[in-house]
Design a protein around this nucleic acid. Structure first.
Lengths: 185, 185
DNA sequence: TATTACATGTAATGTGTTACATGATTGC
DNA sequence: GCAATCATGTAACACATTACATGTAATA
């Protein structure tokens, strides 16, 4: 089966929900996926064009009361098959996640200790802010009575974010401690 | 101060070590950085060209016995300042790390449970393999008597990788358990 | 003589962001 | 009239990978 970009599969997946237009897709991403998957309009519209060219979806213009016209996309059988196929196959490999803090740390060997500690403290702070954001979203979902099934999967992704972030915070603390002790010894 | 790409800073940083040529840079990356920062030759050589154009380093051809000629790069004062400046400033923001497994999970709401569990089991397996790789490198460093200072910073980056990976494995286990229980209830 | 390690580079292609450009409709 | 929301799109640029292209020298 022909291969498409991850962005294409993401959009195909979103089209299985109530989101039918480019604008809707962007809204869904910004509301629910942005902590692990971001897509800009600069990708969304060209990808939707490709999806129609490849006959994975059909378009139709939909007039609305009190709002501008919009284009609604519906998956074709072929589109559903392509999505299904992607969902059924395991990922090829876990990508290397670039980490600028680790890069700086690696080159800090001959840098001032105080600067290295500052970098780590700053990173920890950013991570804690992120953790709080996740917790906030989690609370909002748990409080409001969302569709149970949907909410569960959403919570899984948040749980992932929280666990990873917490682990990174723990690393910061441990590394700060080790670097601090090293100099005082 | 003028901004450069992360790749440029990474190469500037590598040039402070014994690595002086494009080939050396690639070797260092593949040996020590590749678990959190990869760069291909297609980036290295054009970036080195840019670095010279920007007068961040100078080049000179070095003849070797028994090996082809090579180009050696040395940081200029300007190059050192640019690197220093980058090292002294905190990162702008933690980038969103795309996660294809979470993306699939998000769209699995109306998929078969067995397939979702397969995806998670596969992900866990890949993570465990990665964890073992990290542990292996760690052991190699600890066993061989590396330059103590250098080794310490290298171990920090490996510790980060291990902690993050362990957290992700924990998430897999927890999520597999929850999804399994849900269906049997 | 064939393979491996050493060594440098470009071209095509893929992927992604940001800035720009346009316009409808509602509510203040 | 103006701001906000809804809505679609393109162009320029930035970044990265892969495949291609070339060549030296040691060693098995």
């Amino acid at each position: 089966m022909k291969k498409y970009s991850h962005t294409t599969y993401a959009i195909l997946g979103i089209l299985t929900t109530d989101c039918k237009s480019g604008y809707d897709i962007k809204q869904l991403i910004d509301n629910s996926l942005k902590h692990f998957w971001k897509i800009s309009y600069g990708q969304i519209y060209p990808t939707l064009k490709l999806i129609v060219e490849e006959e994975l979806a059909t378009v139709r213009v939909s007039a609305q009361e009190g709002k501008p016209d919009r284009k609604e996309y519906d998956l074709t059988e072929k589109g559903k098959e392509v999505l299904q196929n992607w969902l059924e196959n395991p990922i090829e490999q876990i990508p290397v996640e670039r980490n600028e803090v680790l890069l700086k740390l690696f080159f800090s060997r001959h840098q001032s200790k105080s600067n290295t500690l500052m970098q780590l403290a700053d990173y920890k702070q950013k991570l804690m802010k992120r953790y709080q954001t996740y917790s906030g979203i989690e609370q909002a979902i748990t409080t409001h009575d969302h569709d149970k099934e949907d909410a569960m999967y959403w919570l899984f992704t948040l749980d992932y974010g929280k666990r990873i972030t917490k682990a990174a915070i723990g690393w910061c603390e441990s590394t700060i401690k080790q670097i601090s002790e090293k100099g005082n010894a």
